[in-house]
Nucleic acid binder design. Structure first.
Length: 606
DNA sequence: AAAAAAG
């Protein structure tokens, strides 16, 4: 199995403006396939990392002290599978949240269960070619050069050890570029395809930065029962925050960096207790964070890192006021005094413009075709009348069941438009002999998390979901995404189908299309064409028809929503972007829309 | 019009 995805990749011209590089002959090894690590005993290797890593401790447990020299002896590592740590390094560690860390459970344990349930991962038949020749683009001032290996980056031994524990062999494309940029302290707007390792891309630099500055950074004030996180990671759904937290905990394991999650629908007291134990990195959904801020249980004044996952979603109409409030109207340091990183697979232009408010001279990074689906997903569109949808779904599921191997559960994720629709379809599937669960915003948080677990484990291999599950969730083994109801926005479609075809695996996405979706015809047809999918002739006819009234549909969002926009960043070839303008750190409209190929239409920015 | 996010 290829382990080196980018050994021959060119370095991006440092200092270039509008630099464009193409990682040549790459063999991308996605996260979940990196289970052939060099044989390192990752659990017993002594840790010797730079000096002291630090917990941002609560004062009650001996938190930050003005000398910068942390007290406390070697930690009691009862859960890490190693009884003797590598000596002195641990001795200067801050044990500000000793109690918390003594309890730090091994976050790598859960992995094993899933692997067992689904059997060993196959490493054959993966289409690594899909990652060859992946277009990468950076723009901004003095863009740091990408790296080819984790070893090239000074992340620190403790973090490197966790990377090995995660079985990451080589950085993914977005990681190769984003990590050096972030480590250089630069603000970043990063676009990368679904399932390409974005979480690690912003977590590694944050964890590393917190570790490195542990003795030099300013000290948090001592305020009883108030937590002072150094980093804030916001995401649009509770389950995604949960997932980021789980992942970040792995990366931060035994680094002394403490990660806490806070989201709604769960008992706040548990979260408050966790916060009181000390928090370096806070992962949160906006609503619960605002609550915590209002209760004065969290202060953002020490924030040095701000990461928005699914950033375009976080800045769209529904979320923007809340995000502005958190980022601009509380006590968070302004751009320039904090490092801000925005990540998403899609990034509409108008949202990019909005995002500039939160950034300071940032680097724009695009890996792959922005807003595009990956070639690993086979996309099908079928014309299905509203009244026929259920029986059609049944046919698909029957066929799938017939084809599927006995032991292997092929997970199917079915997206519907409404919460009521999700309930109804789940019920209907169940009474027709298909074990299904449903997840949507009217379910209790317990029900939501149970449904997701039940789906992941294969207990209910069908999950009916609203858009709550459309973004970011990493659910291994989803073989099929069905858009029972198509979304109105092509970006939502991109995120939905991105739940399959992850980690280098192929996936299937089937959409039920009818007259109700005519507004999506054109963007959908365009997207499929870019992804080298077969576009049915009838869909093209729909597209041509909707094209006629296209100017009208702009009225919905931000005055003009340009459906042509950036679904294919690469339509005319990424290389042609070389002339892009940089204006105050962001890509100006002229450069942005220029070079986008034959279908270029007036930019929404113009 | 719907979904999400606080309770």
């Amino acid at each position: 199995m290829p382990t080196s995805w980018s050994d021959s990749a060119e370095k991006a011209p440092a200092g270039g403006v509008g630099a464009t590089t193409r990682a040549s002959r790459t063999n991308y090894v996605p996260p979940h396939l990196r289970n052939r690590p060099p044989s390192v005993d990752t659990t017993s290797a002594p840790v010797s990392h730079y000096g002291a890593a630090v917990g941002n401790g609560h004062q009650g447990h001996g938190g930050p002290n003005p000398t910068g020299i942390r007290s406390g002896g070697p930690r009691n590592d009862s859960s890490g599978g190693s009884s003797s740590r590598g000596g002195g390094a641990w001795n200067n560690r801050n044990n500000g949240w000793d109690h918390g860390r003594a309890r730090e459970s091994n976050p790598f344990q859960d992995e094993l269960d899933t692997e067992e349930a689904f059997g060993a991962q196959e490493n054959t038949g993966i289409n690594f070619d899909a990652y060859d020749d992946i277009p990468v683009e950076t723009s901004g001032k003095d863009v740091p050069a990408p790296v080819n290996t984790f070893a090239e980056i000074d992340l620190g031994e403790a973090l490197n050890l966790n990377i090995r524990r995660c079985k990451y062999v080589k950085p993914t494309p977005v990681q190769r570029y984003a990590i050096p940029i972030a480590l250089a302290g630069r603000d970043l707007m990063a676009c990368a395809q679904t399932g390409s390792g974005k979480t690690a891309a912003f977590c590694f630099p944050i964890i590393s930065g917190i570790m490195k500055s542990s003795q030099s950074g300013p000290r948090a004030p001592r305020v009883p029962r108030m937590a002072f996180p150094l980093a804030l990671i916001l995401s649009p759904t509770r389950e995604l925050s949960l997932q980021i937290h789980e992942e970040a905990r792995k990366f931060a394991y035994q680094t002394g960096v403490r990660v806490v999650v806070a989201y709604g629908g769960a008992p706040i007291n548990l979260q408050l207790r966790e916060l009181e134990r000390g928090v370096d990195i806070l992962v949160a959904t906006p609503g619960r964070l605002v609550d915590l801020l209002e209760r004065a249980r969290v202060s953002l004044q020490m924030i040095r890192y701000l990461a928005l996952d699914e950033a375009d979603r976080m800045l769209d109409m529904g979320f923007e006021p809340q995000i502005r409030r958190i980022v601009q109207q509380m006590d968070m340091p302004p751009p320039g005094l904090r490092q801000t990183m925005l990540f998403s697979a899609t990034f509409p232009k108008e949202i990019q413009r909005l995002a500039a408010d939160f950034l300071s001279t940032y680097v724009f990074l695009a890996v792959g075709r922005v807003g595009s689906s990956t070639d690993l997903i086979v996309q099908r569109v079928e014309y299905v009348l509203e009244t026929d949808k259920r029986s059609h779904l049944m046919d698909l599921l029957h066929a799938q069941r017939a084809n599927g191997d006995q032991g292997k559960q092929a997970l199917t994720l079915v997206f519907v438009e409404t919460k009521k629709g999700a309930d109804a379809l789940e019920h209907w599937l169940c009474i027709n002999g298909f074990p299904a669960a449903a997840i949507h915003g009217d379910r209790t948080q317990q029900e939501r998390e149970y449904a997701l677990r039940s789906f992941k484990s294969g207990k209910t291999p069908i999950l009916v979901a609203t858009d709550v599950a459309a973004r970011g969730l990493d659910i291994p083994h989803v073989a099929h995404v069905v858009n029972f109801d198509l979304p109105n926005d092509i970006d939502d479609y991109v995120h939905r189908i991105g739940r399959t075809g992850r980690a280098g695996k192929t996936g299937l996405a089937t959409a039920f299309f009818n007259e109700n979706n005519s507004s999506l015809a054109r963007p959908l047809a365009d997207l499929m064409q870019e992804a080298h999918q077969e576009v049915p002739a009838w869909l093209s006819r729909f597209a041509a028809r909707s094209n006629f009234g296209r100017n009208r549909r702009g009225g919905g969002r931000f005055g003009s929503r340009d459906f042509r926009r950036d679904t294919s960043f690469n339509r005319g070839g990424m290389d042609s972007y070389g002339g892009g303008h940089i204006n105050n750190g962001y890509v100006a409209s002229g450069g942005y829309s220029g070079g986008y190929g034959p279908t270029t239409v007036t930019s929404a920015w113009d």
